[in-house]
Design a protein around this nucleic acid. Structure first.
Length: 659
RNA sequence: GCCGGUGUAGCUCAGUCGGUUAGAGCGACGGUCUCAUAAUCCGUAGGUCGCAGGUUCGAAUCCUGCCGCCGGCACCA
């Protein structure tokens, strides 16, 4: 009986339609699944959507839908995306289903019974958009993530006693050094743990769209308790064919941004409930677009669908797994994508297949010949490639594994040129056995490379399989025992056809940009969002999202703010803080004021001395890094950028009021 | 500021328990073959191995300092 292997992708939040970041994770998971299957496991792969929360409530409202309707639309987009890509998903989980709610409530109950849940209250500044409390913020402060104004919220919450698990979690991570990979991520987890843990608020009363707690009151679960539990609810009560329970998961594949929740919260929840913990966590890096972080606000998100249309799903899989070292950040660009397509797939694999099959047809009437020797020159390189590729894939190092396979492809190309079968064919009888060996070797390399590539290029592998005329179904092929010499002489090959027609770089890139603009517009319509202008081909969108305009105020309200012209008398860096400068500013008072401003990344202290600036003079004093700050400097704050100080074109006297 | 990582040819990277002329793939340029998807194959391209010191007979490889970049934390807006 096969051992089971249960792996998961994260569940994706339905505030956004699928983009290539989602695709990257899910493709990797699919490749892992196929690889594990070929190693003899019964594999279950789940993915799904995270649908609750205030952000969805509001997005739905803006789109004129109920939250459920809204979630339905986006969830369907994800499902379709994985279908178009041909991903082998066993279960698509949605947090808005009753089955899931039941498991979440049960997990809560277990934690409650064990004494790890208590009721408390919390007051703080809350950002609705990002659904997070902003620690240390004052009323009206903007959200650090999005810049939108925060709201003061007090609520009674249920708390999870995370602090009680610090030691157990540390011990767990010490004893399971492979639990979190790559290692650099593990170090982060340990560092975070050692700083100490505070209890976690796991419920909200401000949200309606969520799973109710099985207690009195209007509490619904807050994101992590709800979302993480999907990993369990997806396979609730299920076993493998052999009767082995699917939980615990063998691998959670995640992005690095959600590491902490998976490496700390999730094990703690499970420990509290007395349930088995997952076996492994792998945090992959981000896909950067031409070395910039992809984000909605930068407008440089890329979708997979245009790529599938122009090049196909397999080339996208190949690119993502070959170009990016799994676990590290990687750069995505259309140029690199098309480059890889032409050089590796068209000229490499595709051409080897084409020339090999064509020669067998021309010189041997389409029948795989019997090699004259048992150990042709390519036999050992092939064995080495099998061993390196399998080992690399096993540690999820796809790029290295693919390198090894392409090394074999190159060796075959080189061997073919050295042997020049087209010459052997003209030499008649005396070269006959030699030609047999050459043709067999080429076909055998093709068969071995194809077998190794099944997890990465499933569609292409199947096409080659048929073209080679392999008698057994490709689904039944395993990696166990894969070796040189298993291709049977006498086999009649199938119909050759080009696998990856070469494309013109510029034409392909233009087409990709055009389809991308259409896809982006389509997604915006789907989510009921105002349509963004399509990006100019190749242009990097730099405009950020317009921050919402604050509530209207009266002239009297404005009059409360005392803005003054000030002259910077001195400026120095604040020790121990990257962004802070300590200034003394003359605004016409007896003594210059001490003001601490977060502009050190944008301005050198010496640049500021003698400069006239605008000061909010009647702001409540506050201590920053132990230094008294009596006021605030007015600056344009660019999202994700450096602040730019307000100033005057004409000369103005110090102390003048702005109104 | 603290912690971790990283900086090698135009691009993506390999190479570090110190040791001959520092490597691969892609791209570029030149050439070759003709089975093949104007593919393959061969050759060329001269990179202060971030910078500066140090240890050593000898350092990309060890040590120290500095700089850049990335991540986490702190901090701020």
């Amino acid at each position: 009986m096969k051992p089971k292997y249960y792996l998961t992708t994260p569940i994706y939040y339905v505030n956004a339609a699928p983009h290539i970041g989602h695709t990257y994770t899910t493709i990797a998971a699919d490749a892992i699944k196929r690889f594990k299957q070929m190693q003899g496991y019964e594999v279950v792969l789940t993915t799904g959507t995270d649908e609750h929360g205030q952000k969805i409530e509001r997005a739905a409202e803006a789109a004129g839908k109920t939250p459920q309707q809204f979630a339905d639309v986006v969830a369907e987009e994800f499902r379709k995306q994985w279908e178009i890509l041909g991903l082998s998903i066993d279960r698509f989980s949605r947090t808005s289903t009753p089955e899931h709610a039941e498991v979440v409530q049960r997990l809560f109950q277990l934690c409650l019974n064990a004494g790890y849940i208590y009721k408390g209250s919390y007051t703080g500044q809350y950002c609705v958009f990002d659904e997070l409390y902003v620690s240390d913020a004052k009323p009206g402060d903007p959200c650090p993530e999005c810049g939108r104004p925060t709201e003061t919220v007090t609520e009674e919450n249920y708390f999870f006693k995370l602090s009680a698990f610090q030691q157990r979690l540390e011990e767990f991570h010490e004893k399971n050094p492979d639990f979190v990979q790559p290692e650099t991520r593990r170090n982060e987890v340990l560092a975070f743990l050692r700083k100490g843990l505070t209890d976690l608020s796991i419920s909200r009363t401000t949200i309606k769209w969520g799973i109710p707690l099985p207690v009195a009151g209007n509490h619904v679960f807050y994101v992590w308790f709800d979302a993480l539990t999907t990993y369990m609810s997806a396979v609730e009560g299920q076993t493998s064919t052999a009767g082995e329970p699917l939980w615990p998961a063998d691998l959670h594949l995640i992005g690095k941004e959600i590491l902490r929740f998976h490496a700390i919260y999730w094990p703690a929840f499970l420990m509290a409930a007395g349930l088995p913990l997952p076996k492994k966590l792998f945090a992959h890096g981000w896909l950067l677009f031409e070395n910039e972080k992809m984000s909605k606000s930068r407008g440089n998100l890329v979708r997979a669908t245009p790529i599938i249309k122009v090049l196909g799903a397999d080339p996208l899989r190949y690119f993502l797994l070959r170009e990016v070292v799994f676990g590290q950040d990687g750069s995505f660009s259309y140029d690199a994508l098309v480059g890889r397509y032409n050089s590796d797939l068209a000229n490499g694999l595709g051409n080897l297949s084409s020339r090999t099959l064509s020669m067998i047809r021309q010189y041997r009437q389409g029948v795989v010949p019997q090699p004259a020797i048992a150990e042709p020159p390519l036999a050992q390189p092939a064995r080495d490639a099998i061993s390196s590729a399998v080992q690399a894939f096993d540690r999820l190092d796809f790029s290295r594994g693919l390198e090894a396979i392409w090394g074999l492809i190159s060796a075959a190309d080189k061997y073919i040129v050295e042997q020049a079968p087209w010459k052997l064919a003209k030499q008649g009888e005396e070269a006959r056995t030699q030609l047999d060996t050459v043709l067999y070797s080429a076909a055998e390399v093709l068969r071995i490379a194809t077998t190794l590539l099944i997890p990465i290029l499933p569609q292409t592998a199947e096409r080659i399989w048929l073209q080679l005329g392999m008698p057994d179904a490709i689904d039944s092929v395993t990696l166990q025992g894969l070796d040189w010499g298993q291709l049977l002489p006498g086999q009649r090959i199938g119909e050759p056809a080009a696998l990856f027609p070469r494309v013109d770089l510029q034409e392909a890139v233009d087409k990709l940009w055009q389809l991308e603009a259409e896809e982006k517009a389509y997604q915006a319509r789907l989510l009921g969002q105002p349509e963004a202008p399509p990006p100019a081909p190749g242009a990097k969108a730099e405009e950020g999202v317009m921050q919402p305009i604050a509530e209207p105020i009266s002239i009297d309200d404005f009059g409360k703010v005392d803005l003054r012209v000030g002259l910077v008398k001195s400026a120095e860096r604040v020790k121990g803080a990257d962004k802070l400068l300590h200034l003394y500013v003359d605004i016409g008072e007896a003594q210059p004021r001490s003001i601490v401003a977060g502009i050190a990344l944008a301005y050198q202290p010496e640049q500021l001395v003698g400069r006239k600036v605008v000061i909010v003079a009647n702001l409540q004093p506050r201590k920053l890094r132990g230094i008294e700050s009596n006021g605030m400097i007015v600056a344009a704050s660019l999202e994700g950028g450096k602040p730019v100080l307000a100033g005057f074109l004409e000369d103005v006297p110090v102390g003048a009021r702005l109104k």
